Simulated assay, not measured.
Amino acid sequence: MEKTNFLLAKNEVNPAKVLPGWYVAVIDGKQATTLKAFYEQIAQALDFPEEFSHDLESFDEMINDLEWIEEEKVAIYIRNSNEWLSREKANDRLLTIIDLLDATAEDWKWMDEEEEEDVSRKELLVVIDDTPRIRTLLEDQEIPFRALD
């Protein structure tokens, strides 16, 4: 079975126990109800360099780099996912972030050998608390996911 980029957690998990050896960035959906707040949390959780501009283009650039993180495996754990970006007027921004994370995780998988010499290769995984809202969004975007064992 192909590895999915998204894992859905039934109950709040301890990412360090579930993903030993991974760099785990924890995002609290209750504190990231807007895109601005999400950018602030992700920048802190992934220790983005100072040049991060707190916008989508800069987020895309940073999440596709991650060279400053020593670990090859990086997980983003979004707890309280029902509240995550819930104050945004439409789901468009949330869908854009989800699509970008999925595309980035896929890009890391298919990095060719020539690119690997120039860039430290990473594996990206997104763990999200399982809610009907998140499940529906992933299904509507046709993004594969599986339950966290």
Score class of each variant (00 low, 15 high):
D65L: 14
E115H: 07
K122W: 05
L138E: 02
E88N: 02
D47V: 10
I134D: 06
W68F: 05
D60C: 01
E113S: 14
V74P: 07
D129A: 06
A45S: 15
L94M: 14
F52A: 12
W110A: 11
L138S: 02
W110D: 12
K89Y: 13
A103Y: 07
I42Y: 01
S58K: 07
L66K: 08
W84Y: 00
A105E: 09
F59G: 03
T136A: 13
V127G: 06
A103V: 13
D102I: 12
N80M: 15
D65I: 12
R93E: 13
E139R: 14
I78E: 12
D102T: 14
E117R: 09
S53Y: 15
D130W: 03
R135I: 12
I128K: 03
D112A: 03
V119I: 13
K73E: 09
N80F: 09
I42K: 05
L124T: 10
E83Q: 15
I78T: 03
T104Y: 04
L94W: 00
R121C: 07
E117Q: 09
L94F: 01
W84V: 00
A75F: 07
E123N: 10
D99T: 07
I63G: 00
I63H: 04
V127D: 05
D130R: 04
E88H: 00
D55Q: 14
F48Y: 01
M111V: 05
V74H: 15
N64C: 07
I128R: 06
E123D: 02
I76F: 10
D107M: 04
H54I: 08
R133V: 10
D140I: 09
E70I: 05
R121Q: 12
A90H: 04
L138W: 04
Q44T: 06
K73G: 00
F52M: 05
R87C: 00
D60K: 05
V127F: 02
D130N: 10
S81V: 07
V127T: 01
L85P: 01
I42L: 08
E67Y: 02
I128C: 09
V127S: 13
L85Q: 00
E88P: 02
E113H: 09
S120K: 04
L46M: 14
L95T: 13
D99A: 14
S120R: 07
N80Y: 11
E113C: 10
Q44P: 01
R93C: 00
D65Y: 10
V74S: 06
A103I: 10
E71F: 04
E88R: 00
A43N: 13
W110Y: 10
T131K: 06
N91M: 13
E70T: 06
P132D: 08
R93W: 09
R93D: 12
Q44K: 08
P49M: 01
D140Y: 11
E57C: 04
N91H: 06
I76L: 15
